[in-house]
Computed example of a mutant assay.
Amino acid sequence: MRIIKEHSERRAEIVDAAEALFASKGYASTTISDILEALNIAKGTFYHYFASKEALMDAAIERYIDAEMIVAQAVADDPHISAHEKMFRILTGAGRDKKRGDRLEKEASAVGNADMHQRTMASIVLRLSPILEGIVRQGMREGSFRTEYPRECMEILLAASEFLLHGSAFAWGGAERLQKAKALAWMAEKALGAEQGRFSYLYKKYEGDGACCDQC
């Protein structure tokens, strides 16, 4: 008996299978035939949902970003924690699937598609900056932040972080990356009128010590 599945369910199954294969074999070594075999579907079914393997990777990344935004928004909406604590949790990835994110970032870099990487970074900046803007405004009410440009500051800081620290355009060594992260933390404190040292967690992970909750 033929099983007919909803469009969104079938699409999600294809993305799930692709993510698993990318994780086990790597993006470059995974073929569309591998995905078809894993799901026992016809080639026509695959191309009904995705134009290419790159489009499939794009969908996997976008789905991951969707999940990231849900977690970030939940933190931002919590009325019981301070703006500094919210910022700390979101920027350090508390409650997020970091391993999955790191894996997707690594495999995405193997695609060799600069346009895809640029779209990914732009999506993160455009979707996360409004959430962080709300947190900055909370901090302004609490007296811990002071800035005339809450949205723009977050857009610039996020763009710098994504491009300089997480992007593949620069082959920074460990010491260079740490220095950039320290500069980013300094700029965040200056731009948001925050107490010196409040954003040191942005570079702690590059020292290998992790982030320190007492900064918040």
Rank of each mutant, 00 (worst) to 15 (best):
A160S: 15
L158R: 05
P150Q: 03
F163P: 01
P130Q: 09
N113T: 05
G173Y: 12
K205G: 13
P130S: 05
D209P: 00
Q179T: 13
S200N: 15
W172K: 06
L178S: 05
G173L: 06
K106A: 10
I131C: 00
E107D: 10
C153K: 03
Y201C: 03
A169H: 14
G174L: 12
E105V: 05
Y201E: 03
E148H: 08
L192I: 09
S109K: 13
G173P: 08
G193A: 07
F145D: 00
A188G: 10
L165V: 05
Q179H: 14
K99N: 12
V111D: 04
Q179K: 12
M140N: 07
L104S: 01
T147C: 09
A160C: 14
T120E: 03
E155D: 14
F199D: 00
K99Y: 11
A169P: 02
T120M: 10
K182M: 14
D115G: 11
L164A: 10
R141C: 12
T120W: 09
A108M: 15
S168T: 15
D209A: 15
A159M: 14
R127H: 00
K205E: 10
L104R: 03
G101H: 02
P130V: 09
C153H: 11
K190L: 02
E162F: 05
K190M: 07
G173A: 05
R137D: 09
A110F: 14
V111A: 14
R151P: 02
R100A: 06
R103E: 06
K204W: 04
S168Q: 12
F163W: 07
T120N: 10
R177K: 15
E152C: 02
V136C: 01
